[in-house]
Amino acid sequence: MKIKKLFVLILCVLCIVLFCACNKTGQYLIFGTFVDIELSGSDASKKLVEIEKRLIKIENLMSATKDGSDVYKINAALKDTPVSVSRETMQVLICAKEVYTASGGAFDPTVYPLSRLWKFSADTYVGIPTTLPCDEEILDALSLVGMDKLLLDEENLTVTKKLDGLKIDLGGLAKGYAAGEALSIADGMQGIINVGGNIVAAGQDISVGIQNPRGDGYIGKFTLNSKMSVSTSGDYERRYVYDGINYHHIISPFTGYPTGVKDDANLISVTVVSDNYTLCDAVTTAVMVLGKEKGIELIEKLNLKGVLIDSDLTVTVVGDIDFVEKK
């Protein structure tokens, strides 16, 4: 009988081994971008389904182009008309306001009309410009920019615009928030969560390469500790070249032009590491707008870490990151 018991025990151990070998990935197109999630564990398939549902719900609340979303309603509203929003959207808006204030307006989600004018928003981007916007159009769109003209009532969950025509896009903030929500669903599991470039290390340290902004492959790598997130913004994606000038999707709310075109912002890639998943992407944008010196000040002020790359590919590491440049 002892041998029979041993037999049962062996079977149980083998079952556990087989379960542990279970590694699941999920790829989705949500937020108009690519979502890639790798999870390991016996519950992985179930968790992936749960995550997909949650991400779709967030997209339906925060997309600027989905009819009926909170953001769509805010953009369509007239001034002085309170718009009811969900608790989730309010949470992301509060985070946006924090970065807006800390960066002195360098990050501003109300830059959306300018993004549309330059044809860099998700629904207008085609990559080939036939013409550029004229100064008058840029000034008109600039007059609609300013998160201080958006009043947030946290208690009653309402948003009120103080200016007709003001429009917002929560873009990277919503994706970062979604990545954090995915992590909370996958709590206790190991893997990598990537929501449109907002990457979160789930339950394990991972090695992250930073895209070479002027070539193939990555320029260097670092360790992203478990439950930390990373996001990168740069002038090399969603862009077009017109008359030899690189126009890209990161628009300065100060000049109305892509960063580096009418200002001396000297960065071509900014990577930020944080345990605040929502804020990461917004800070990368703010640092691109502010340029190197003020950008470093912002990262330090917010107690974050970052890797900045200049136009001559000089790398500056801010904070405690084990970044190693590729040889």
């Binding site: 790829q27 197109l29 690519f34 890639d36 990598i192 990537n194 470039g197 990457i199 991972i206 090695s207 992250v208 390469g209 930073i210 895209q211 070479n212 902004p213 990555y218 790598k221 990373v230 996001s231 990168t232 740069g234 090399y236 994606e237 890639s269 990577t271």
Partner: peptide, 18 residues
């Protein structure tokens, strides 16, 4: 066109940001 091309496997890094 909703197409992704991805390299998987055990490489020098787990994921590339950018």
């Amino acid at each position: 066109n909703k197409v992704i091309v991805k390299i998987s496997g055990k490489g020098e890094v787990d994921v590339v940001t950018g």
